[in-house]
Simulated scan of single mutants.
Amino acid sequence: MWLSTLRHRTSLRGILKSASTTAPQLHRTTRLIVPNARISTTPRANMSSSDDAYAAFLKKSQKDYSGGTTGIDDASPAHVTNTPQIERNPHPAINALGSERFYTSDVDEAFEPVSLSWTKESLPTGDEFAELVGGGSDVEVLEPSEWDRRGQYKDVVDAVSAASEAAVKVYRAERGTRVVYYVVGLDTKAGKVVGMRVKAVES
Rank of each mutant, 00 (worst) to 15 (best):
Q62D: 14
T22D: 10
D52H: 12
E202K: 14
D108C: 13
G135D: 03
V114K: 05
P90D: 03
Y103P: 06
E112G: 11
A173E: 06
V133D: 00
G98D: 05
V170A: 02
K199F: 14
K154R: 14
T22M: 12
T10A: 13
E131S: 09
V194Q: 00
V107M: 07
K63H: 11
A163S: 03
L3W: 07
S48Y: 08
L6K: 10
E121A: 09
R31E: 12
A200N: 04
V180T: 06
T30Q: 11
I72L: 15
K169Q: 05
T69M: 10
T21A: 15
N95S: 15
E109K: 09
V80T: 05
S11L: 12
I39R: 15
M196F: 14
S105N: 05
V160M: 04
D52L: 09
V170C: 03
F57T: 12
A56S: 10
K154L: 11
A200W: 02
G135T: 02
L3H: 09
A75C: 12
D64R: 04
V183G: 04
E109Y: 08
E112R: 15
R28K: 03
K154T: 06
D64C: 06
F102Q: 05
A45Y: 08
G134R: 03
N89L: 11
V34I: 14
S11Q: 11
G151K: 02
R178T: 13
N95M: 14
L142G: 02
F111T: 02
R88G: 12
A163V: 06
P124I: 14
K199W: 12
D127N: 07
E100Q: 06
S161A: 15
A130C: 09
V114G: 05
T30R: 10
N95D: 12
P35K: 11
V107W: 04
Y171G: 01
A173C: 05
M1C: 08
K169D: 00
V114R: 02
G98V: 14
L116Q: 03
R88L: 11
K59T: 15
P90K: 02
V194F: 08
F111Q: 01
S50E: 04
T69N: 10
G126E: 07
S18K: 14
V107H: 05
H79R: 07
R28Q: 07
P77Q: 06
S117V: 14
G136M: 07
G195R: 01
Y181D: 01
S61T: 12
S76I: 06
K169R: 07
T21K: 15
G176M: 06
E128L: 10
A162H: 08
S99T: 15
P92K: 05
S40C: 10
R28L: 06
Y171C: 05
